[in-house]
Design a binder for these strands. Structure first.
Length: 876
RNA sequence: GCGGGGUUAGCUCAGCGGUAGAGCAUCUGCCUUACACGCAGGGGGUCACUGGUUCGAAACCAGUACCCCGCACCA
């Protein structure tokens, strides 16, 4: 029989077809039976608004590699997928849609708006799922979850109520980060600090009852309307006698006290006088608390000046107000200075609006009691964070953590389960109360605020498994094994999952976290639309195929940032092409498919076959080891190197004389064909997690027993395949061939010129080996003859290769200058190394202290160098 | 200010105590009947700097310089 493969590698021809085949075959769904150990992983749910970007491609490729590897390795494997409702992001998208239609969400009202968002979600929310499929993700789509599913919402409510009853959720008036654009509170981690070139203004405040003026510096003059004090350091001799006095606040024309505060004021900084605006600055707020200052809110929720700012400013945008205030101060001669100043300013990461610190009544999670166990579990190894260096960052954050602001003034999200009756009593309840438990009032209104999206994400590993019910999935698959995600959501998500998991399930939600780096461009620059260096994964999948894209991402994924370039993908598309063609070659020659292939009789195998099996076995061992350590880069590199540079470059070439019937017996040919099939089969299985499509396409043509390569067993190393003798001999053969090719090129001969080579092998076993495999060396090094253990003629070029002295007899004595220089260089290099080796061996300390094995190899190396130098010197 | 990372071939990186590596780029030959998305061969590195530990350091320790990333602060 003969097998066949299309002449060209065209990923588009089969990628989609195979994905449909996998889905139809339900290969992504874990088995119902439980004899197998389980392996589970939950996806970092992409936003429903999301479109697949290269970061998603990376995270999902890595997850898929692990999942396919584990599944093939015999684990009952679940990769649970889903999407996140992404409160603000989604609300923004739908808002924008409405704006296009000329309406606002306020025209619709809350209920109608929510309906619209749900509609939108149904229509577009799964686009990213289809894109994940193109990448080859083998997630169990039958278990697809959404953070606002009924089940997940129930989990959210249960957690909220429990934490409230435990006193870990509270509602209070506090200074929070307010986004005037989104008109909601946000948490600390959602504020991004950006360097900005601005101005530092110095304003003069006249001291009441004196001619003196106090100079205060500020970057935000508009907040002065809300000043309720100025502060100096209590021990600052310049000002301490003024403490207790007052200044006249310009423009507002209010008298405000001069206070002494050692915490707020650094006498060395600026003028040593600070204006205090308790309603619009975090530090000032705290100062205000210490000194019982009143709070005047001069900026409202929309970022405009409030009633309190006075009729002249009311309604002005906060930055317009700044200009106006500066103009007035200038007019009054109270603006002393305006100098350039760079500082970082907090903006809302989602919309880039400058955050306004505001005093507001919000809901908070008291975080310390949750953080402590989450620190311990990492410290004692219950959760391992990889690369390990992230643990320090984790601890640093967790140990300085602040209460988490969880309420959002949005319409899209989990509505907080707090209910207020007409008499102002509050009830927090898992089920909607019909009447007030305190006064019996039946007029109950639910809290309008919704929860931070990350609140529901924090429950993801167990809420998706059916928790709080004790469902089969929860029993079988929780806790999960690994979490693979970007380092950028370590605080947002990973830390919070650990906290919630420990609190509610008594278990860490996963035992290992692998944090991958940021995908950057080839020069290490962040990808951004403005720079125009963005790589769209869907584009490159179209161009190079999903396998090449995946492989490129994997081979760079060491945990650090990934410098990605299209040329690299091109390179790994070439690798896919190589696999295709090598498989094509193999199929032209094998005489059986996998199903009917008989077991290999190892006893009668020739050295070449034993060698490639040994190499493959070694690669197999290393790949499994690398994958266990999440070294995707190493694992993919190993396979790449084995397949291309050992299997294709050497083994296939070496097998050709036998395969083509030019050498050896029929039995030899049969064995070579069998081993060719074996190596191809194992290589494909080894490679499958990285390149699922091409390996499936080829493997199916090879006729495996299993319906799909994705459920065929992953290769594991077998000691019987190890053969150090074969490896040693073949290393020598390869080196010998390379040496001859090298000499040929150096002397300007063409591949058509053939030479006679003399080789010396003292042990009879080795002599026999070289005699038997002489044909191979003759073929690949293009010799006229290989003579074993005969005297080489005068003038032949001598060398020692892997311990075997050789001599190459060229047809005529052509010695180029290049050749002489090269010989000279080689001699010098050998001399230098010889000298170093001698020095080391002469060092008594070395001989005494170094491990015996190291001394032994050094001695052997020394002997080799001596022999080689002797031969090389004869070439001069 | 606190914490973390980096500096190895032209580029991007791996190696992290025992003879300097990979991919890409580059140079030289080859259309050798699986593959020119290919084959073969070559060139290219005082492993940032200074000390220390060690028989032995690119690797371990200390310091210096430059770069990057978190967190906090920024009147």
């Amino acid at each position: 029989m003969s097998l066949e493969l299309a002449k060209r590698y065209e990923p588009k021809e089969f990628e989609q077809k195979l994905y449909e085949f996998w889905e139809r075959g339900e290969f992504f769904t874990p088995m119902a039976y439980r004899e197998r150990p389980k392996f589970s992983i939950v996806i970092p749910p992409p936003n429903v608004t999301g479109r697949l970007h290269i970061g998603h491609a990376l995270v999902n490729t890595l997850q898929d590699i692990v999942v396919r590897w584990k599944r093939m390795s015999g684990f009952n494997t679940l990769w649970l997928p889903g999407t996140d409702h992404a409160g603000i992001a989604t609300q923004m998208v739908v808002d924008r849609e409405l704006t296009k239609q000329g309406i606002s969400r306020f025209d619709l009202g809350r209920e109608k708006f929510e309906e619209r968002v749900w509609q939108w979600k149904e229509q577009y929310g799964n686009e990213i799922i289809d894109q994940l499929k193109r990448l080859g993700s083998s997630a169990d789509w039958t278990r697809l979850r959404f953070t606002m599913d009924e089940g997940l919402s129930r989990a959210v409510r249960h957690v909220f109520v429990t934490l409230y009853n435990d006193g870990l959720i509270y509602r209070d008036l506090a200074m929070i980060n307010w986004c005037p654009n989104c008109r909601t509170a946000i948490s600390d981690v959602e504020v991004e600090f950006r360097e900005q070139n601005g101005k530092l203004y110095t304003i003069e405040y006249p001291v009441v009852g004196s001619d003196r003026r106090l100079s205060v510096a500020t970057t935000r003059p508009e907040t002065m309307l809300g000043d309720t004090a100025v502060a100096v350091h209590p021990e600052d001799d310049r000002y301490k006698n003024l403490i207790g006095g007052e200044v006249l606040l310009p423009i507002a024309n209010r008298r405000i006290p001069i206070i002494g505060d050692a915490i707020l004021v650094d006498p060395e900084f600026g003028t040593g006088v600070v204006k205090v605006t308790p309603a619009h600055d975090k530090n000032d707020y705290e100062t205000g608390q210490r000194h019982h200052l009143s709070q005047i809110q001069v900026i409202d929720e929309t970022g405009h000046m409030s009633d309190e700012a006075g009729p002249e400013f009311k309604g002005l945008d906060r930055f317009e107000a700044r200009k106006k205030i500066l103009a007035q101060l200038k007019e009054q001669g109270l603006l002393a200075e305006a100098k350039d100043y760079t500082n970082s300013i907090g903006v809302h990461g989602k919309c880039d609006t400058i955050i306004e610190p505001m005093i507001s009544r919000q809901w908070f999670v008291k975080i310390e009691p949750l953080a402590k166990p989450a620190v311990d579990v990492v410290r004692n190894g219950g959760v391992q964070i990889l690369p390990q260096t992230w643990e320090a960052t984790y601890f640093n954050w967790m140990e300085n953590i602040h209460d988490w602001t969880i309420s959002r003034q949005l319409w899209w999200g989990h509505r907080i389960p707090a209910f207020y009756c007409s008499n102002g009593h509050m009830t927090v309840s898992e089920t909607d109360p019909v009447s007030c438990p305190q006064c019996g009032s039946t007029e109950m209104r639910q809290e309008t605020d919704v929860l931070d999206t990350w609140f529901s994400s924090a429950l993801w590993p167990f809420s998706t498994m059916g928790w709080p019910d004790n469902t089969p999935d929860y029993q079988n698959f929780y806790p999960t094994d690994v979490l693979i995600t970007g380092f950028d959501i370590l605080f947002f998500w990973v830390a919070r999952m650990i906290m919630m998991g420990l609190r509610f399930t008594d278990k860490a939600p996963f035992s290992t976290v692998f944090l991958n780096g940021l995908v950057r461009d080839e020069f290490g620059q962040k990808m951004s639309k403005t720079k125009g260096n963005v790589i769209d994964p869907l584009d490159v999948i179209d161009e190079f195929g999903a396998d090449a894209v995946r492989f490129t991402l994997a081979i760079f994924a060491s945990g650090r940032d990934i410098p990605l370039a299209r040329t690299r993908m091109q390179g790994y598309a070439a690798f896919a092409n190589k696999i295709w063609n090598a498989s094509r070659f193999a199929m032209m020659h094998v005489d059986t498919d996998l199903k009917s292939a008989k077991a290999i009789n190892r006893d009668s195998l020739r050295t070449v076959e034993r060698w490639i099996l040994s190499r493959l076995n070694d690669t197999t061992r290393s790949v499994n080891k690398a994958l266990s350590a999440f070294r995707f880069d190493e694992a993919s590199n190993l396979i790449y190197h084995f397949f291309w540079h050992e299997f294709c470059d050497w083994y296939i070439e070496m097998a050709k004389p036998v395969l083509l019937g030019k050498h050896g017996s029929e039995g030899d040919q049969h064995q070579a064909k069998r081993v060719l099939l074996e190596v191809l089969d194992r290589s494909l299985r080894l490679l499958h997690p990285f390149m699922p499509f091409i390996t499936e396409e080829i493997w199916q043509k090879l006729g495996g027993v299993e319906p799909s390569i994705m459920v065929a067993p992953y290769p594991i190393a077998e000691d019987v395949l190890e053969d150090s003798e074969a490896e040693r001999l073949m290393t020598a053969v390869k080196a010998l061939i390379t040496a001859v090719r090298n000499a040929r090129a150096e002397r300007g001969f063409t591949p058509k010129d053939r030479f006679k080579v003399y080789l010396r092998a003292d042990k009879s076993r080795e002599a026999n080996f070289f005699t038997e495999y002489g044909y191979l060396i003759i073929e690949l090094a293009r010799l006229s003859e290989l003579v074993v253990n005969a005297e080489a003629p005068e003038g032949a070029q001598q060398d020692v290769i892997e311990g075997f002295p050789i001599a190459i007899e060229f047809p005529e004595k052509v010695v180029t200058r290049e050749q002489l220089e090269r010989t000279q260089r080689e001699i010098e290099k050998t001399r230098a190394e010889l000298q170093a080796t001698e020095a080391r061996l002469a060092n008594e300390q070395f001989v005494a202290n170094a491990p015996p094995a190291v001394v032994e190899t050094t001695r052997a190396r020394h002997a080799e160098l001596v022999a080689r130098l002797e031969k090389l010197e004869q070439n001069q």
